[in-house]
C-alpha cells in the first residue's frame, strides 16, 4: 500500500520540486498552495501524512488549517514546515496535535525520516483501531476472549 502525502506550501517552486522528489521516492504525493485547497483535497481522499507550511499568505494560515484538518481527519499525521521566526507557533502547533515540525530550509533526508516516523505512528494507530474493531466484532456475552 502506497503512503499518501499531501504537501501544503504557498511557495510554488518549492512545492513542485518537493512533490516530484517524494513521488520519485515512491510516495503518492499531492501538492496544494493554500489551506483552503488542502481542506478540499482531504475531503476527496484520505492522506496518511500532511506536510503543512505554517506561514502562508491569505485567509488561512498553517495553524488554522491544522485545526480544521485535525477536526476532519483526526488520524492524518501533520508535519509542520516552519521558519525560525515561527518556532513558537510550531510549539503551539504541537499542542494542537501536529506530529512534529521541520525547520526550513529542510534537508530532504530529514523530511523523509519525519514522514516515515509519522507514517509508522499512523499505521500503529490504524492497527490498534483494527484490533479494537476486531475485538468489538468478536465480543459475545458470556464468552471470554483470550487471544492476547
Amino acid at each position: 500500500m502506497e503512503i499518501k502525502v499531501l504537501v501544503v506550501d504557498d511557495e510554488i517552486d518549492f512545492l513542485e520540486t518537493i512533490v516530484k522528489r517524494l513521488e520519485k521516492k515512491g510516495l503518492h504525493t499531492v501538492g496544494v498552495t493554500s489551506g483552503e485547497d488542502a481542506l478540499i483535497k482531504i475531503k476527496e481522499k484520505y492522506y496518511d501524512v500532511i506536510l503543512l507550511d505554517i506561514k502562508m499568505p491569505g485567509g488561512m494560515d498553517g495553524l488554522d488549517a491544522l485545526k480544521e484538518i485535525k477536526s476532519r481527519q483526526p488520524l492524518a499525521e501533520v508535519i509542520l514546515l516552519t521558519g525560525h521566526g515561527t518556532v513558537e507557533s510550531s510549539v503551539e502547533g504541537m499542542r494542537l496535535g501536529a506530529f512534529d515540525y521541520v525547520l526550513k530550509p529542510a534537508k530532504f533526508e530529514e523530511l523523509c525520516e519525519k514522514i516515515a516516523q509519522a507514517y509508522m505512528k499512523k499505521s500503529d494507530q490504524d492497527n490498534k483501531i483494527r484490533k479494537a474493531n476486531i475485538q468489538q466484532l468478536l465480543r459475545f456475552p458470556g464468552r471470554v476472549f483470550d487471544q492476547e
Partner: peptide
C-alpha cells in the same frame, strides 16, 4: 536580522530542493 534571514531562507529552501531534485 530576522527579516533578512527569513527572506533569504525561502529562496535557500528552493535552491536546496532544486539541487536535491537534480541529484535525484
Amino acid at each position: 536580522a530576522a527579516g533578512v534571514a527569513h527572506e533569504i531562507n525561502n529562496p535557500l529552501g528552493i535552491i536546496a530542493t532544486k539541487a536535491g531534485w537534480m541529484r535525484d
